[in-house]
Amino acid sequence: MIALEHVSRRYGRAGEIVALDDVSLEIDEGEFVLLSGPSGAGKSTLLKLIFAAERPESGTIRVLGHDLARLRGSSVPFLRRNIGVVFQNFRLLPGLSALDNVAIALEVRGLPRRVIRERAASALGLVGLARRLEARAGWLSAGEQQRVAIARAIAGEPAILLADEPTGNLDPRLTLDLLQILFEVNRRGTTIIVATHDLQVMAAGARHGWRHLGLETGRIVAPTRHQWLDDAEMVAAAVAPHDLGSVPPIAHDPSHSADHAIFADQPSLHDLMPEQLALAPSGYDESAAEIVPLHVVRSANGRPS
């Protein structure tokens, strides 16, 4: 469904900023893929390339059977109708109702007005906003706005859904709601790619067996490098909403006072980067760890790690 072969993308006048470097990957129909990595790793660039919003310097990209390098500019909109996109900042028109925001995606296809309203309402129903159809988008909460954005992305029943940091503006409870929606959309057959550095999303992905691709400085890396994923279930439990604010279940190494400060100031683990968190297995040796700024030594439910 999506195939990248030796794709490179650089920015800057002399191409000195490497966004993607010789990336090759294949994503099959119906897959749920998580793209993780720190800011600037190339996650958003990868999504833009798949969405044909940018072109690579080298390599080939095939999406839904189209070689994007050979795709004419006039054909790009028709490709995009098969790819829904969701952003961290929602990108809604605040003056329009939720229904009208979703309807935009269908209006450009020239569908009958009745069909547009039915489909838009159905998509909003799927994301739990059946009773908020006429509410102005600007008056909705962040979670509701993100759900409208998802409804707009899926209203046209796209084959692929791309989400770029979709939980960036959501609290952990809303993140869980959104993940459930994405899970449902994926269950209906839509291929989903989520670019994220949200620990909670990755933990949920590990729990559901979603494919995980790590990106670092423009290259695909093995996600197993992040040791915390080895015990993702425990991390997921730790960051689940019912545990938020209850820091005690997660102990830390008192010798790391700076890490302790981060934890104390940010009861929301959601705000922590994956790189800031690592699981410490039994007999953990700090000097041998790759990324160990914070040490989870037992899970929320008290299970020893």
């Binding site: 909109p77 995009r80 109708r81 996109v85």
Partner: peptide, 9 residues
């Protein structure tokens, strides 16, 4: 947004 959802030029 129009471009995002597949509006033609």
């Amino acid at each position: 947004i129009l471009r995002l959802v597949g509006a033609t030029e």
